[in-house]
Amino acid sequence: MNPDRPGETGEACLATALRTAADRFYTVPGYPMTTLGESCGAVCTVNEKVALEYALGDAVSGRRACVILKNVGLNACMDPLMNAAVQGLSGGLVIVVGDDTEVKGSQNAQDSRCIGRVAEIPVFAPAADELATVVETAFRASEQFSRIALVRVTPAVLTAETNGHPPARNQRAGTIADASLTMRGRSEAAENRRREMVRWAQENTIPALVFPPHQGSVPSCSTVSPPAGAPETMQSRGSARTFCRGCPYIPLLEVMREKNLHPILDIGCGLLSKNPPWEIGTAGYGLGSAPAVAATSTGVALMGDYALMHSGLSALADIHEKGLPVLVVIVENGVLGMTGKQAAPDILPYISWATPVLVDAADREAIRAALVPEDRLKCIIIRGRCPEGEYHETVEC
């Protein structure tokens, strides 16, 4: 024991290491992690998915971020957690998860170490005497392999006596997927990084690392293998996918490009805005994720009406409650444009509290006047209808 700090708990040691290594903290309270979040001054959010999305926005901006939650809370994070390994990160992002091993304050028992193989992320399960150093190691792994890292702790580790000083911070830059990559190419590049991560684990002795394992085979959960050459780009394929002929939202894209707005994208047709000829989108981490990611990064989100209803509403509520300045542009076409034009619900009854600005998709001047960020949440609904019988086009690259 350190005579200058006798009887320090594992939780206190971990809190010191986290405050040394990270810039931002987010949490959803729950046993056994409530007091750790408080010790780090973590921002409480409406749910764990929103917490991770805020942290992803920080990571897009090059800041280190940490999410503190309990084991069952990790379940709510799976969509952005999985997507982040493919989309990539710039700043490091670490989730510290507390497994309620004796089910004292949880509805079920689950071992978060199992998430490593599914999400293909590095997982650390430190003993008490490894807590001082594990956080910086996890952040460096996150940045090295451009994906979230997981640190799993238990009540026994948090309450154990320990000591130690965290190492100096040594931040490096991760990589967000190159905009020129096709969807397949992004997955190929992510599989390359996964294989590098496995080699790193097997060629080095990394304290507290439990996934990837130091020995044995590590099969991929991806259906895509790395190509013999470079990952597929739109240029190597010869074409890029773009919007339908007669898409009513072309004026919106033109005004966003004119105003040099670079939105965080949601899943849906908005993803095409990162492709030629528009090339305005920044990154996307899953359905309904754009508002919260944008709130801590570019300040602009582009999403569809269905994505809002799917899982974006909780983020809007949290952003509104916190008074965060973000411009959320919602394309309302009444259908699921990428999956066969199934009907989407009317969104207005559910966000009328946000006093959204309603704009016709053909009214370029109204769009231009509306696309002005403010010092609060601002929602703009761009209303149009998809052309009948049209499908996404391709353009040569």
Rank of each mutant, 00 (worst) to 15 (best):
E120G: 00
L131W: 00
A156V: 10
I148F: 03
D178T: 15
C114T: 13
A156I: 04
A109Y: 09
H165D: 09
S142L: 11
N108F: 13
S112N: 06
D129A: 04
V97A: 12
Q110Y: 13
K104S: 10
D100M: 03
V153R: 04
F139W: 07
R147T: 15
D129T: 03
N170Y: 13
A141C: 15
S146F: 07
P126S: 05
M183P: 12
A125L: 10
V153I: 09
G105V: 06
L131M: 02
Q110C: 13
Q144N: 07
S180T: 09
V151R: 03
E143P: 00
Q107H: 14
V135W: 09
A132F: 03
S142N: 09
R113V: 07
C114P: 04
A168L: 12
G105I: 06
V103A: 15
A168N: 12
T101E: 11
Q110S: 12
E161A: 05
V94M: 08
R184F: 07
R117C: 10
E161S: 05
I121V: 01
A156Y: 11
T154L: 03
D99R: 02
T101M: 11
V157S: 05
R152Q: 09
R117I: 14
L181F: 14
R113M: 08
Q110V: 13
V153C: 05
A132G: 03
E143F: 06
A177N: 10
C114H: 15
E136A: 14
A138Y: 01
A160G: 11
A128Y: 04
P166W: 02
A119P: 01
M183W: 14
V118R: 15
E102L: 05
S112T: 10
A128R: 04
I95T: 08
A138D: 00
N163Y: 09
D178N: 14
P122G: 03
T159D: 08
R147C: 15
G164S: 08
A119V: 04
F145W: 06
V118K: 14
R172P: 00
A149G: 03
T162D: 03
Q144S: 10
A132V: 03
